[in-house]
Design a protein around this nucleic acid. Sequence first.
DNA 1: CTGAATAATGCTGAGCAGTTTACTAATCCG
DNA 2: CGGATTAGTAAACTGCTCAGCATTATTCAG
Lengths: 385, 385
Amino acid sequence: MATTGTDMSRMREMNQLSIVWALRGHPPSTVTELARRAGLSRPAVDVLVQALVVDGWAEVEEPGGSSVVGRPARRFRFRATAGHVLGIDIGVHKILVMLSDLEGSLVRTVRRPADPQAAPEARLAAVDGVIDEVLRDAGMTPGDIWAVTVGVTGPVDATGRTTLSTPLPGWRAADPAAHLAARFSCPIQVENDCKLAAVAERWNGAAQDADDIVFLLAGLRTGAGLILDGTLRRGHGGAAGEIGALKAVRWLTAPGHLESCPGIPATAAPGEAAAWVFQAARDGDRDAKAAIRRYTRDLAVGVAALVLALDPQVVVYGGGFSRSADVILDPLRRELAKHCLRLPELRASTLGDESVALGAVRLALDEVDSRLLSDGLAAPAAPRR
Amino acid sequence: MATTGTDMSRMREMNQLSIVWALRGHPPSTVTELARRAGLSRPAVDVLVQALVVDGWAEVEEPGGSSVVGRPARRFRFRATAGHVLGIDIGVHKILVMLSDLEGSLVRTVRRPADPQAAPEARLAAVDGVIDEVLRDAGMTPGDIWAVTVGVTGPVDATGRTTLSTPLPGWRAADPAAHLAARFSCPIQVENDCKLAAVAERWNGAAQDADDIVFLLAGLRTGAGLILDGTLRRGHGGAAGEIGALKAVRWLTAPGHLESCPGIPATAAPGEAAAWVFQAARDGDRDAKAAIRRYTRDLAVGVAALVLALDPQVVVYGGGFSRSADVILDPLRRELAKHCLRLPELRASTLGDESVALGAVRLALDEVDSRLLSDGLAAPAAPRR
DNA sequence: CTGAATAATGCTGAGCAGTTTACTAATCCG
DNA sequence: CGGATTAGTAAACTGCTCAGCATTATTCAG
């Protein structure tokens, strides 16, 4: 614990930050309200917030129709558009780019299908194209972006590479951070998709109230992201949550139970077989229900391992299959109960397939915040690496 | 992130704390050295440290034989004896109580064997006896103790009970925190033994350099404690690390491979069978080596689950069997390699069976520190709950 | 033994940030 | 139009840190 000494300029910086924190996430506020929220006196807040306005971090909203007696107060608002961040999901089948302001409001979202077989260079070129489109639509340049976070499939090491394993063809040698660094001078972060989705569910999704979360990204592949004590846990080498690699955990073969269900029309594409099974189960099909039971039985072993290892409050079921959570959660819960000491809540994702990109946005915003805390508030500007 | 406003008195408090932090863990220091460490000016440090001396947090060491030219500097030292904490290990076979000063130096350690069959009341009475002995030897009263942490076997919930499971007879209904609260008015914490041992290994043991640690408490029972990003993780219900409850993980039966090893003398007590096998393996006995292989094969499944779930930097092998780590680590490492994506370092505990009590001391000290950070430095006194 | 050299201490004034208090300004309502 | 109410603002005050300089205690050379 390295408590470091403080002088008065640092104190002012901290107080200015506390005003920023009091402004954000609230409707436009009067000086009095800010003073109460930040625990400072009115005159002090007045001076600080004026400085924030001058620097461009805040803006005044001239008083509207105030229905109370007395002199109407100026209301100050955090200038969320002072900076923007990008959250990018590079998936096997799609590329999703989100542009967000500093408060997390999405300015622009563009989704493009991707060729599952595309080589890394082609995939990254496609990403560049989507980014260009987003920036053009928003009238921005790369210099306006303060942080970029990219979600990819597979465990991500400290350099932003996925050297251990990934289903994206050729991707083990790819270096998306280096690729983006050529265009963006701001901090660039690459992160595993499951981890980002977990972050998103805690931010805006199904687990906003929980501090200990296991997120399952369930689809034709299965992965997990872990949030403990409110913070994403990556593990020493960035490979936390890769319980699916354990042979005793049948995550690799679990979705096969769905695809091998009797009755699937021969015309169904590989990705559609599972959806057919889920629909059939909803309609009461016995074979489909049995297939789901087999799927959840295999899935539950790995989930139980995570639950027993981490004792989370909530397990969020997300990913492509989460649309069919209505027919999966109950069987899964029953299977889990057989293994666990204490059963956590089991919830369905509310963010669907936008969770990865949303989590990327959140992590990029966190990066901006941590720069603010360490470097203080100079006039708003894109941080450099 | 609730950044709160700061005024000048709070700033002084923080600076005083930063002086305390700069004093602790260093040899007696001059004002100049403190100023450098705390990032403050000499005059400021001078005033602050004098106040600390007046309040009893620090003491002056009159200059000894200084061999340098010039006026000899006063040297200040953290008054570690201003307060003390207790770390208590309530084991199945032993009770271990450690009295430590605020710097973590052990003042007094007393170990007593315990009856494995003792009922909770008898066990707690025995604990009281050991505590009395420790306090008497040190010339202290319960009022001199600032924090108490107790280690017990089994997952501990938020109230300090072990309602889920524990091998201590009748202990599920026991409430050691309430029992101790009758005598101590300071904060009392109950924690799982594996978790405490993990804390100790990071503090003073085999994993001081690591932030992500899986600690194995291996003996006739097997358990785990997790440290992630430098902090003990308890899980939402305090049951993190209980991977041994998973049926696919054969931790319950793993030690049986050792006890059923052919060649064990019939005279050996149950607890000594394992030790005999380890010694026989050292001497080259094939059966013993095979038994160890079977043991590590079963152990490795659960360890691999933890490693894959958390991706730690280090796995520490501790507990009763850790004395025989020389014949266990290599086979275990080989088995682990079969399961894991990335093999963490595997190390033997250096604290042996004192780790639980030491971890309890560390957690009690952490409790004191967090009180200091939140309540500030009044004159040193035992905090109340 | 004395005085120069050295290094730490202690003191004083300047500067800065936030608080308190009192006063002025703007609006609503009767 | 005046009183009530609330917001903004100026001045005095407190408390803190810092820089610089005088003071003090010690060593060492002559």
